[in-house]
């Protein structure tokens, strides 16, 4: 039963992560960030019992029972990973865009100077 519960939870998290990545690539990074935060929060507001039971489900106990791993910890890991991807995607896009623009501006001023 424990392994089945873990597989079920993993499938849910993978589906969630793929959805966010799909939105990031195909639609918008801002929408992906919104979905990333909104889905768990709304789930907790709409179905607090089910959601909290899901998030507090404990999969493992590491370090001789000292470190429990619940679904909430997995959600935090997923959040940090996907938020990092989205943030750095945004930042690199901006950086590359500004670099391209400056290069283009340099070319234009050089041509007009001749």
């Amino acid at each position: 039963m424990e392994i089945l519960a873990f597989i079920g939870c993993a499938m849910l998290f993978v589906t969630f992560a793929l959805t966010v990545l799909f939105i990031l690539i195909k639609i918008s990074s801002r929408l992906a960030m919104l979905v990333l935060v909104a889905v768990p929060v709304l789930a907790v507001i709409i179905m607090p019992g089910t959601s909290l039971a899901f998030l507090s489900y404990r999969h493992f106990l590491f370090a001789g029972g000292l470190v429990p791993v619940n679904n909430f910890h997995i959600l935090l890991t997923l959040w940090s990973t996907l938020a990092g991807i989205i943030l750095y995607t945004e930042f690199l896009t901006w950086y590359l865009t500004i670099g391209k623009r400056k290069k283009a501006e340099g070319n234009v001023s050089g041509t007009s100077g001749k």
């Binding site: 039963m1 424990e2 909290l52 039971a53 998030l55 507090s56 489900y57 404990r58 429990p68 619940n70």
Partner: peptide, 9 residues
């Protein structure tokens, strides 16, 4: 499941 969720939640 044989597991106990955190009671404080």
């Amino acid at each position: 499941t044989g597991e106990t969720p955190d009671i404080g939640n």
